Amino acid sequence: MSVTPSRVFSGARLKELRKEAGIKGSTISRLTGIPESTISCWVQGHNRPRIDLLILVADVIGCEVTDFLVPNEEVSSGDHA
Rank of each mutant, 00 (worst) to 15 (best):
residue 1 M to P: 01
residue 2 S to W: 03
residue 3 V to L: 11
residue 3 V to M: 09
residue 4 T to R: 14
residue 6 S to F: 14
residue 6 S to K: 15
residue 8 V to Q: 12
residue 8 V to K: 14
residue 9 F to W: 02
residue 9 F to G: 00
residue 11 G to H: 04
residue 11 G to D: 03
residue 12 A to H: 11
residue 12 A to L: 14
residue 13 R to N: 05
residue 13 R to Q: 13
residue 14 L to K: 11
residue 15 K to N: 12
residue 15 K to E: 11
residue 15 K to V: 04
residue 16 E to I: 03
residue 16 E to L: 05
residue 16 E to R: 07
residue 17 L to W: 13
residue 17 L to F: 08
residue 17 L to Q: 12
residue 17 L to T: 00
residue 18 R to S: 03
residue 20 E to W: 02
residue 21 A to W: 08
residue 22 G to V: 05
residue 23 I to H: 07
residue 23 I to D: 06
residue 25 G to I: 09
residue 25 G to P: 13
residue 26 S to G: 10
residue 27 T to I: 13
residue 27 T to Q: 14
residue 27 T to A: 13
residue 28 I to S: 06
residue 28 I to P: 10
residue 29 S to E: 02
residue 30 R to D: 09
residue 30 R to M: 11
residue 31 L to V: 02
residue 32 T to E: 01
residue 32 T to D: 01
residue 33 G to E: 01
residue 34 I to D: 00
residue 34 I to H: 00
residue 35 P to K: 06
residue 36 E to R: 13
residue 37 S to F: 09
residue 37 S to Y: 08
residue 38 T to C: 05
residue 45 G to I: 04
residue 46 H to G: 04
residue 46 H to Q: 10
residue 50 R to Y: 11
residue 50 R to A: 08
residue 52 D to V: 10
residue 52 D to N: 14
residue 52 D to T: 11
residue 56 L to V: 04
residue 56 L to S: 15
residue 56 L to M: 14
residue 57 V to P: 11
residue 57 V to T: 06
residue 57 V to K: 07
residue 58 A to N: 03
residue 58 A to H: 08
residue 60 V to H: 05
residue 60 V to S: 05
residue 60 V to P: 10
residue 61 I to D: 01
residue 62 G to E: 04
residue 63 C to G: 03
residue 63 C to A: 03
residue 63 C to E: 01
residue 63 C to R: 12
residue 63 C to V: 05
residue 64 E to G: 05
residue 66 T to F: 05
residue 66 T to A: 09
residue 68 F to K: 00
residue 69 L to D: 02
residue 69 L to Y: 11
residue 69 L to I: 02
residue 70 V to F: 02
residue 72 N to G: 10
residue 72 N to K: 15
residue 73 E to T: 07
residue 74 E to P: 01
residue 74 E to M: 11
residue 75 V to H: 12
residue 75 V to R: 15
residue 78 G to F: 08
residue 79 D to I: 03
residue 79 D to S: 12
residue 80 H to Y: 10
residue 80 H to I: 05
residue 80 H to G: 08
residue 81 A to R: 09
residue 81 A to H: 08
residue 81 A to G: 10
residue 81 A to Q: 07
